[in-house]
Amino acid sequence: MTDDAIGLPRNPDPRPDNQDPALFGQTPWQTVGPFFHYGLPWKGGADLVGGSDIGARTDLFPEEHDVLHLAPPRGPVRGKTIALVGTVRDGEGRPVPDAMIEIWGANAAGRYHGAADDREDVALDPGFIGFGRAAVSAEGSFRFLTVKPGPVPIQVGGNRWQAPHIAVGVFGRGLIKRLVTRVYFADADGNEEDPILARVPEARRHTLIAPRIGADPPTYRFDIVLSGEGETVFFAL
């Protein structure tokens, strides 16, 4: 005998939820909250050239619950390794200890990983993906090791170029949704002609341009101010 055959009652009292066709659309953002450290950053997430486990905060949960992945070493990465360092601050200038940073960059030749960049005249680097994630320290600071990306076109097939840059996403407790920005390099060519920088009010452009503050490896400082005086430029995509 089937369930239907015994006449199971079903008397729905519908209320709107995720499955309501009338509500279909973008799933809304919600904050990562303060406790993302054992769910999101992996060991080595901030080291895009491989070889270290920076990026995770294993001090924030007991070892017996440690399920964070340790990114395996990849092949040698082409190009010059750089460090990208900075501190996240709030609207009163205080460091934000529970933020998380993600970066996305092209390889040293200017090619992005993935099918959406299929240019065959610019080489992929099998050792380099270009995506990184770091939980900031108790002092609000982060440090990525990556390569300085090459210049990339605005679009595949186009001949207008962007200056070397890395896309940045900022997450954290108190950030309901990601804030998106970009880091450019003070010593790179092309910043003056960059089409995205050109859309940023000139007085605020400096918040996106990282000075070189160290030599071995070349180290660039990109401080992030979430709110108020000196606020970093954030983008609507």
Binding site: E92, V152, P153, G172, I176, P195, I196, R204, L226, S227
Partner: peptide, 17 residues
């Protein structure tokens, strides 16, 4: 204290995005 006071700068999506 953790949200921008300035309007977001609307930019086109390039190959990066």
């Amino acid at each position: 204290l953790r949200s921008p006071r300035q309007p977001l700068v609307r930019v086109p999506q390039t190959l990066t995005e």
